[in-house]
Amino acid sequence: MTDPHRHSVLDDAQAIAYGAGMAAFAITILTHLGLVTGQTAGLAVLISYATGWGFGPVFFAVNLPFYWLGWRRIGPAFVFKTFLAVGVMSGLAMVFPRWVSFADLDPIVGAVLFGAISGSALLALFRHGASLGGVGIVAIWLQDRTGFRAGWTQLLFDVVIFALALTLRDAATVAISALGALVVNLVIAVNHRRDRYVAV
């Protein structure tokens, strides 16, 4: 008999496909506008801008060191799902610019769209035991080891990312980018509630 409180393999597969696909589309919007974001994706975006390398391969490579820690801290199921999600997102981020173009996209509207789409993508992945980045894993590990709150670690990482962004982008672009990051976090903060979502 199927456990009504657990996701099936098909449930997980569609969530990974949706989450990774929407995240890749959101990154297409972000990089089209020359904006930046936080967390591991933000680091990959900055490396991409600084080197000219494609976001997809950089994002995939940046995440590699975190899987071992995720395996030890959270477990193999999480690492496997996250590896799949990162792989799918990286691949789609390479091909989306060939499939999607924008004749006119206001940067502020684009930042909000990026935030909303990214937030929904991450929600789908979180609710199915996956993620798209390694910074969260490190944050949880540090919290367990030292007691330093995971949220503060992620915030400090984002502060560094946006400070570095000022060396590659003007202040107005970074400010608009911060709006997009704020929308991502608001979507997650309002909707990612374990007390309201019981399936795992």
Rank of each mutant, 00 (worst) to 15 (best):
I47D: 10
N63T: 14
G91P: 04
G119F: 09
T31R: 15
A124D: 05
A24R: 09
W71F: 15
G133H: 02
A15R: 13
I140W: 07
L10M: 13
I27C: 09
D11T: 13
L43P: 05
L64P: 10
A17M: 10
G129Y: 01
P97T: 09
W53K: 10
S101K: 05
I29Q: 08
F55C: 10
R73G: 00
V95T: 10
F78P: 08
M94T: 15
S118D: 06
I137E: 10
I140K: 14
Q14S: 14
D11N: 14
T82G: 06
G134E: 00
G52N: 06
R73K: 13
V138F: 11
L43H: 04
G52H: 07
F80W: 14
G19M: 02
G75N: 02
D106I: 03
V45P: 15
A50H: 07
Y67H: 11
F59T: 08
S120I: 09
W68T: 13
G87E: 11
A111L: 03
D12G: 02
V95R: 01
V58Y: 02
T82D: 06
F126M: 11
P76R: 14
W99I: 13
A26W: 04
L35G: 09
S8C: 01
L122N: 06
G38Q: 09
L122W: 08
D12P: 00
V138I: 15
I117M: 08
A111M: 04
A77E: 12
W71Y: 15
L105Y: 07
V62C: 07
M89L: 15
G38Y: 12
V58K: 02
T28G: 04
A139G: 10
V138W: 10
M22D: 05
V86I: 15
T31F: 10
